[in-house]
Design a protein around this nucleic acid. Sequence first.
DNA 1: TATGAATGAGATTTCATTCAT
DNA 2: AATGAATGAAATCTCATTCAT
Lengths: 223, 223, 223, 223
Amino acid sequence: MAAVTQPAESAGPPEGSGSDLVPAAAQGRELRARGRRTMRRLLDAGAAVFAERGYHAVRVDDVVKAARTSHGTFYLYFTSKEDLFRALAVEVATEMTALAGEFPPFADGPEGRAAIREWLVRFTELYERAGPVIRTWTEAEISDSEFGRIGGGLVGEFTARLAARIRPAAPDLDPMVAAMAVVALVERTTYLSLTGTRPGDRDKTLDTLATAIQAGIRGTARR
Amino acid sequence: MAAVTQPAESAGPPEGSGSDLVPAAAQGRELRARGRRTMRRLLDAGAAVFAERGYHAVRVDDVVKAARTSHGTFYLYFTSKEDLFRALAVEVATEMTALAGEFPPFADGPEGRAAIREWLVRFTELYERAGPVIRTWTEAEISDSEFGRIGGGLVGEFTARLAARIRPAAPDLDPMVAAMAVVALVERTTYLSLTGTRPGDRDKTLDTLATAIQAGIRGTARR
Amino acid sequence: MAAVTQPAESAGPPEGSGSDLVPAAAQGRELRARGRRTMRRLLDAGAAVFAERGYHAVRVDDVVKAARTSHGTFYLYFTSKEDLFRALAVEVATEMTALAGEFPPFADGPEGRAAIREWLVRFTELYERAGPVIRTWTEAEISDSEFGRIGGGLVGEFTARLAARIRPAAPDLDPMVAAMAVVALVERTTYLSLTGTRPGDRDKTLDTLATAIQAGIRGTARR
Amino acid sequence: MAAVTQPAESAGPPEGSGSDLVPAAAQGRELRARGRRTMRRLLDAGAAVFAERGYHAVRVDDVVKAARTSHGTFYLYFTSKEDLFRALAVEVATEMTALAGEFPPFADGPEGRAAIREWLVRFTELYERAGPVIRTWTEAEISDSEFGRIGGGLVGEFTARLAARIRPAAPDLDPMVAAMAVVALVERTTYLSLTGTRPGDRDKTLDTLATAIQAGIRGTARR
DNA sequence: TATGAATGAGATTTCATTCAT
DNA sequence: AATGAATGAAATCTCATTCAT
């Protein structure tokens, strides 16, 4: 759970940060050490129970019990269940965006493939921790709540960064569309292989994915 | 196919169907013409409102209003909102499985690509109607309710059928994994392009997808 | 179930009978053979399911299913669930009153005791069939519905008839109070031994009861 | 005793009690003073409205109105109406069992009779408060819910304790059966005389009962 | 005479949020 | 800063009764 939880713990609310990055209830409140610890406990508990049971099935009571605190305390730090989720989502989105920026340039041959595969390993690790939050965006996009914006923004950002890599590597593909396809492929395959619907061998999955992405982009380009 | 959105008064649920294909509340009840019509109205209303607002946001009240009937009547045919959903899911799963069986054999060249593209058009059309139901499985798989089984079964079936096509075309890929990747790619891309997160041009999306699938499988094979 | 069901079947509604003896819905309707049969089926089904699950737990649907007929038909013969119960209650009350009239005169010695015991056997048999209906009066007396009157009337009648036997046998007891005690003793003991709370040996129970009643009345008298 | 109708703020449910003695919803929750007060209010309100209208006729709404609290609060302490009833039943059963243990040894003569009569007075007082709860067991025993066990257990306990008194006093009676008869006699007579079906004179009823019990047991023994 | 279908008032239950200490 | 208790709006579900054929 480390990466999801680090930023806030180490830094506290980023100075002069936009309104979205800090839970509404904590706005304008100075948090002392104890307060920050409690908030962290709630965030971690939220991540854990959302992962376990999904956003809708989770009750504030579950979060509060997992964090070994009380309802009253919860609402001291977050204005609502959604507010807690948003805070988690922002943490995840930050990490995801950073990861997207590190997608390797496409290159032919085994090294190119190895680079992609390595990136996929990191993606899978992140997804393993943050998947439930990510998947909840999917639910959320249906109803046009605020998560939608975060999720949509993230996918857009992610896609744009990949597209920048694809454009030079495959000039005759629409880069945005291709990038979207890669995002879709990676996210969903990881999802399927993690939820055990198709358990399979993780290594084999990563191999196949890396190969297919390389072939899909470069193989197409070769024509 | 008929069931989800067209009236389908004539056909109704397949007669003599196994126990899973009929909503629990209607088990063991003989339905006359009027009863079947009402049940159909409820199913169609359910499909419509789930599509519009998502499973969790929908109230039984929304369904019965859309079907212009009463709460009492709803519970005459379905034991709960979940029961209604299950019935819809079974309908969709049936259609999906049939479509999976019609995936064309992989072939090189423009004809092979055109065949894949044509299949993708049909998939997109089905997804457009049934997507909300399919996406709800995603939510549901988190908690291990019964939908999970239907959804998992469907993905498994779907994957197996595709794998049968991939095996001869790309002998050095693990066919199950590759099939899973295709499923993931197609489903999620269709999802992203339909939910407008990445609106884009639908034709371009289909072109790119068809190309990428062909290249990903055959291009890999060629090596 | 014979005795409970005979009267109505053989005779039809008693001519010029008071309003209470015929279910309201059937008032003023001429019942043909088929109709009488259906009504009988409903009464028997009612007796059976009330016996099995108690008045409140029984749904009209249970009655209707047990009688293998429909809701619509039910309301052709009875105005409500309560109406059905009342009809059954009247049947039972009639039998009970008759039985009360046949309580033997108190006498000392083994013959007196044997006579009481024989009467108890008949009472137990009746109670076995009609107990649930009788017990429901108990529930009903709490809320002052119409059953209360029937039940109260029955207990009154029963008590009065017993009191007439007790008066000459035990001049220094208040006969009404003593009769009430006998009713209480017999009814409740039968109840307890039938509901298996105290399973025990039925013969032993009858022996003890007969002895105790005789001793309670005559033993007291002797002083 | 206190629990059913008196405030009993000081005592509350026995601390460290076994699992059956605490309503399911409150299991594992520490109750502070305020919480215990609210729970007590709900128990008392329940006893009052059950007494007034009977178990089945009572709505949770009636209970919360009588306790001047909210639905939400009710479900904080009890999982259902049945759970509330069970809690009351356990309280009553405890008192009843204690009273049974104090039934006087049977003895001949006026003192023996006076002792029985005195015990009957106490029984009547308890019954007057707790009767509705006791009578509800009767309804409940029809369906084999959990009350049945409590009720059955109570009757069994009660009977066993009486039997221990009867055994030495009337060696040629089956003590269990005789005890059951006494239970039946006392309970039902009290019931009949309280529900006013047979209003009568309470003193006369108690006299007659005491006499009859003594005669029924000792008179039999003399033979 | 019979029936399957429909109804809707009313009951139960949940749970995010606020209160009082 | 923390907490246990309370709230009530809103959702789910039941079932006696009526309707339409």
